[in-house]
Nucleic acid binder design. Sequence first.
DNA 1: ACATCCTGTCGAAGCGCTTCGCTCTGAGGA
DNA 2: TCCTCAGAGCGAAGCGCTTCGACAGGATGT
Lengths: 365, 365
Amino acid sequence: MLTVRFCTAKRFSGKRFEALGGYREDWMATLADVARHAGVAASTVSYVLSGKRSVSEETRERVARSIELLGYQPHAGARALASAKSNVLALVMPLRQDLYVPVMMDIAIAVTTTARRFGYDVLLLTNDEGPEGIRRVATTARADAVILTDVGMQDERIAMVRQTGVDAVLIGVPADSAGLDCVDLDFAQAGRLCVEHLAALGHRQVAFVGEAQDTYDRQIGFAERTLGGIREAAARAGVSLIHRPCGGSYEAAAGVLARIFEERPRTSGLIVQNEAVIPPLLSLLRSTGRIVPEDVSIVAVCPDPVAEQTSPRLSSVSLPAAELGTRAVDLLMRRMADGGRDEVVLIPPTLTVRGSTGPAPQRSR
Amino acid sequence: MLTVRFCTAKRFSGKRFEALGGYREDWMATLADVARHAGVAASTVSYVLSGKRSVSEETRERVARSIELLGYQPHAGARALASAKSNVLALVMPLRQDLYVPVMMDIAIAVTTTARRFGYDVLLLTNDEGPEGIRRVATTARADAVILTDVGMQDERIAMVRQTGVDAVLIGVPADSAGLDCVDLDFAQAGRLCVEHLAALGHRQVAFVGEAQDTYDRQIGFAERTLGGIREAAARAGVSLIHRPCGGSYEAAAGVLARIFEERPRTSGLIVQNEAVIPPLLSLLRSTGRIVPEDVSIVAVCPDPVAEQTSPRLSSVSLPAAELGTRAVDLLMRRMADGGRDEVVLIPPTLTVRGSTGPAPQRSR
DNA sequence: ACATCCTGTCGAAGCGCTTCGCTCTGAGGA
DNA sequence: TCCTCAGAGCGAAGCGCTTCGACAGGATGT
């Protein structure tokens, strides 16, 4: 086998370096070195690498051997400069770190691994740079495209995307999605599924423990859509519904829960969206003597692992975070290749029945 | 005010472009354009930007105006090529996504925002590329340095760091840290604090509910060190200790807890490290009729927000995830500037007493 | 008075890669 | 037989920026 002889992070080569003083242990082969070693022109090596022109089988192999032997790796910056493509995409993470952390994490990981499959690397942007981060990354050609997460109905980042004309895919759907590619779970349908499931089990009084109030204030799309779907299905199924936003703390959950049963003691079905609330909620129900699912049924909208980590396991509509990330990258790649379809991809939700839902208790209770 | 006239993500300029056909709405100013507009040499503009040579106040202002007017942004790739510095650092995320997700997230966010302050962007690497990802990113000059998280006592990525000679900082401390900069919470001390706190409250039988068994199998540093600290302090304080690894699921927690009280019914103090276990644990204690802290005291090693989201709030040694990220970047910047000090920075832990710990119950119980 | 040192600026070379246009061969069609 | 054309390879120009050496001219030291 041939072995890599030199391969280090510091690149030293070229005239500038040789003029400076010569040999170094840590030396990086350049395309020119490969060409020289293989006895061909630099352009030929480039064509071998890119496949953009045909190269005879023979030279291709010779070049490949030289590449291997010299441990050649193309310089990303030089490539970006010459080809006007950085092969990097930027992932913009949400404003608040407190919310749906596991979801964001899954998205980030899925985006990164999927991007790699297409030869792209992922640059992480936090929102403390604001929309300017998008401009910066786009105009300095640090990234070729961006993926936005945690998209609000009105999102200032969208204006920046439009202004710079950078290719983008949103995870989440804004009010005006004209000219944009978006992907999201069909939260309205998710909401409907929850209600229909409870209704089918005979529950007539349902409470929706939603996201924190400020999520609604900021008009984050998925929260509004879920609520919409729930309301619609409740009306259709003749289920009486109350909606209570709820922060992630134990106290918030306690307050909300108390108020729900105070106002409507007959409440037998709970729909939960804010995953942080789930542990407190279960704990509170238990300590107030309500058995799940005999007395109260719970259905959640959350990632499957979360639903499976409680006791009893939660019936839930799963939030396929990884799929969102993967699909976003797919859309982005297609957009960069063929141009955008300005498509809104809504992933159809599925409800998995686990141990937290059962028939509504008899009236005689 | 002067306004930016052209500013888009697509860059079109230079001879290659003009030869190709001329004017486009979306046009990007280059350094040469700025120079021409300001009536100076390109190098002068460069020096204005970098400050590496003195430029008269007058020309500096003229150049600044031109930059503003043309909406000039330097091309990252060109910079990287010419200066042999990408101004990017790579953050390598852990193998498993299941563990300490909020911690990783905080680290990622802290690293990103801190890096920005130094003019660096952050590239996200997942471990499914393995150590090769580090090589790739280093040898293609996509990143100037790397930050490793979730470092094991024996970590194959370290060999790659040594081999490529890329600047690196580890979050976590490996068995052999020679030639490396590391930063971590002083987990041994954290463990000691937990034991000492319980001992001071009179607890004589303590159980350590640790990380999942495979975390110990993989010899992740922090898990071993915590255990070490706990053992040492227990021996010193005359506290009798058992250690039970515990996965994150409800069932695992139930099993471990049951076994603990079976083996040693007098157990009155619990130390918890795996934050996923906390909600199930509290829930189980309640349902088996043990009151916290009257019957059982709990002290956790976890991020403050986690400790504050339960009822009762947990006395805990805080895991300063954000600080780890910030410090890692600081170390890295210093390393790139002055060379490495090969330093292991251990952040001194602090224990915050909250509602979950109290005096040990009387023997007569 | 001279050699010497800054300061501020310029021009040119260079970073490592892609891509365009050209040349040369040999095969195939008319 | 002549022309065409695809295949294979080369050379050079170019991407947009940094940096080195040079140089003009004024200030400084002796």
